[in-house]
C-alpha cells in the first residue's frame, strides 16, 4: 500500500503552500455561504448564500484538478438551479414571510444541533485516524490520467462503465419533465376556477348598472355587451342612455 502511495504521490503534482491557501479560502467561502443559507431570514438571501457556497465548491473542484466538473458545477448549479430557486421565490413572493421564532416542536433546534454535532464529530473521529483504501481498490478502477485528458476519461467512463446509469438518468429526466409539467400546468380546474372568479368580481358592476337610473333594459343588447367588456360599466351606466353606445367613451365625451 505504501509503495502504491509513493508511486501515486509522485504521479500527482505535489501540493504546496498555494494549494493550502486556496483550500483555506475555498473552505471559508463554502462555510460562509452555508451559514448564510441557514441563518438568513429572507429566502432570496439564502439563495445568494447558496450561490457563494457553490462557487466555493467549484473552487475546491479546481483545486482537485477537476476542471470539467468545476465548469459544470458553475453552469448547472449557479446558472440553472439557483436561478430556478430565485424564479420560484420571486414568482411566489414568499420572501420575508418565515417566522423563525415560532417553534412548533419544542426543543427541536437544540436537539437537531446536538445530533448533527454528534454525527459530524463521530465521522470526523472515524476519518481522522482511518486508513483509507488507497491500495487495492484503487488499482482496479479506471484511471483519471488517461490520454485525452480528464474530460475524455470521464466521457469514456460514462458511456462504457456507467452506461446503464446514464440511460436511467435519461429516463429520470423524462419523468422529471413530465412531473413538472403535470404539477404546474395540469391544474386546469384551479385555473378555470380562477378565471371564473375574476368575471365574478366584475358582476357587482353589472348589478349596479342594472340598478342604475337609466336601467339597462333601455340599452340595446350590443351596447350592453360592449359596456360589460369595457370594464367601466358603473360609470357609463350612470349617464344618459343614448350616448352609451360608444364603449370606450370617457365621461367628458359623454357630457358633450
Amino acid at each position: 500500500m505504501t509503495g502504491f502511495l509513493a508511486i501515486h504521490a509522485s504521479a500527482m503534482v505535489a501540493t504546496t503552500l498555494p494549494d493550502a491557501i486556496v483550500f483555506a479560502v475555498a473552505a471559508l467561502i463554502i462555510l460562509a455561504g452555508a451559514v448564510g443559507v441557514i441563518v438568513e431570514r429572507n429566502p432570496v438571501h439564502s439563495a445568494l448564500g447558496l450561490v457563494i457556497a457553490l462557487f466555493g465548491v467549484a473552487l475546491i473542484f479546481l483545486l482537485l484538478k477537476d476542471d470539467f466538473l468545476a465548469a459544470v458545477q458553475i453552469i448547472v448549479y449557479a446558472g440553472a438551479i439557483v436561478v430556478l430557486f430565485l424564479f420560484v421565490i420571486m414568482f411566489l413572493g414568499v420572501d420575508k414571510r418565515e417566522v423563525i421564532a415560532r417553534e412548533s416542536l419544542r426543543g427541536q433546534r437544540p436537539l437537531a444541533l446536538a445530533l448533527v454535532l454528534l454525527a459530524a464529530v463521530g465521522i470526523l473521529l472515524l476519518g481522522a485516524g482511518a486508513h483509507y483504501a488507497l491500495g487495492a481498490s484503487a488499482a482496479t478502477g479506471t484511471a483519471t490520467n488517461q490520454p485525452g485528458g480528464e474530460v475524455a476519461a470521464l466521457g469514456r467512463s460514462i458511456f462504457t462503465t456507467y452506461l446503464l446509469p446514464f440511460e436511467a438518468t435519461a429516463a429520470l429526466f423524462i419523468i422529471a419533465i413530465l412531473g413538472a409539467v403535470v404539477l404546474t400546468k395540469g391544474r386546469g380546474t384551479l385555473s378555470q376556477e380562477r378565471r371564473e372568479d375574476s368575471p365574478a368580481g366584475d358582476e357587482p358592476d353589472d348589478v349596479s348598472m342594472s340598478d342604475g337610473p337609466g336601467s339597462s333594459e333601455d340599452l340595446d343588447v350590443g351596447a350592453g355587451e360592449q359596456v360589460e367588456g369595457s370594464g367601466s360599466a358603473g360609470e357609463v351606466a350612470s349617464v344618459s342612455t343614448s350616448v352609451v353606445r360608444v364603449p370606450g367613451a370617457t365621461s367628458q365625451e359623454v357630457e358633450e
Binding site: V72, V76, L84, Y132, T144, Q146, L154, T169
Partner: peptide, 30 residues
C-alpha cells in the same frame, strides 16, 4: 477520493449527482 485514488468513478458519481439534483429541484419546485 477520486483524485487521491486516481479513479474516474468518483467524478462519474458527481456527474450523476448533479443530474439527479437538477431533476429533484425541478420536481420539488413544481
Amino acid at each position: 477520493f477520486a483524485e487521491k485514488l486516481n479513479d474516474i468513478g468518483g467524478q462519474a458519481a458527481v456527474f450523476f449527482v448533479l443530474v439527479v439534483a437538477a431533476a429533484e429541484v425541478v420536481v420539488g419546485l413544481g
